[in-house]
Design a protein around this nucleic acid. Sequence first.
DNA 1: GACTATAATAGAA
DNA 2: ATTCTATTATAGT
Length: 351
Amino acid sequence: MSTKRTLDNFFTPPLVSIKKRRLSVPDADELVACSVSHVPPSEHPTYPFAVAQLPAPLLAQFDYLPSADPRHIADQPDLDLLYYQPFLPRDLATAYFNHLRQSLFFYRVTYPIKRGPVETIIRTPRYTTVFGLDDTALFSSTGDAGSILDARTKQPVPSSAYKCRPRPLPGCLDALRRATEATTGRQWNFCLVNYYAGGADSISYHSDDERFLGPDPAIASFSFGATRDFLMKHKPSATETGLSSIEGAGKGAQTIARDKPLKLPLASGDMVLMQGATQANWLHSIPKRAGRDADKGRINITFRRALVRGGTENYYRYNVGDGGVFKWNEASQEMTPWDAKAKQDEDVKVG
DNA sequence: GACTATAATAGAA
DNA sequence: ATTCTATTATAGT
């Protein structure tokens, strides 16, 4: 039997009001919490291994975010972004990046896609992992740590309700979620994590406009580690296509200055909040890149809110899948298959 | 500025 | 939501 392993760490963190400036010295409880750092790692029956908590000195800095005011980007049709440049100070972002890469488990999902008559297996060109549960359900915080409750009735939902095994956010990600919610006034129940090992890893143009997110979803997207270009372009529209062809023949018709593609070089600690009509009308991508820095890793974290069970199923299907677990290998500086039996040694802590 | 190599982009499957 | 190929842009000399 395992020792007491409640989920309190996950869901009832000490709520601290966000304030730009600290007006008082830390009280006794805070001093204890900071110095001892005996908070156990986050565990859950669905985790392949426990996830280390953030070191207290790092966690403490989350009370002072964001470190910069956002820039509102809404000068084009259907575009509505808040760009925090950065949201986390660079030093904190770097330390957070190292902690996450070293502590989380990742997957390399494969899935079939049909191109014309041919079906091919796609190996997702990045590492992924996901945590969270849609609005219809809750993780039990007492009793069986693995159980899921109906959000309304608080009764256990049958295990057959989900084909996947939803997992709660570990403490180190929940800290960022709380800080982001406090800043934006929004709420999210999902955390998706992408690891781009180098310039060859990418994500092609798409929108996060799934039905299960509801209309005009707000999505917070963080960057840590290597700087990568974030491209955005307006979805092609019938009217636009027609206009452009006519415009070529017209005499004085200038190319209309709207719907211009955007290129944001997202640096470590940056956050982009995509909101309003953005997802319904714009595509975004992280294209492959060659040359310098093509070997440096980047972690992307997005917070989303799934409204129904279909969202949970979708996110676990495409971000966990059914393949093996990968873990960062500090010695070889790469993601390596994690062997559940031959429990690997812990990575050497940097610093 | 021209020439060449490499990178970025756009379109098709 | 990817990969391949062709086309265009950029960087270096």
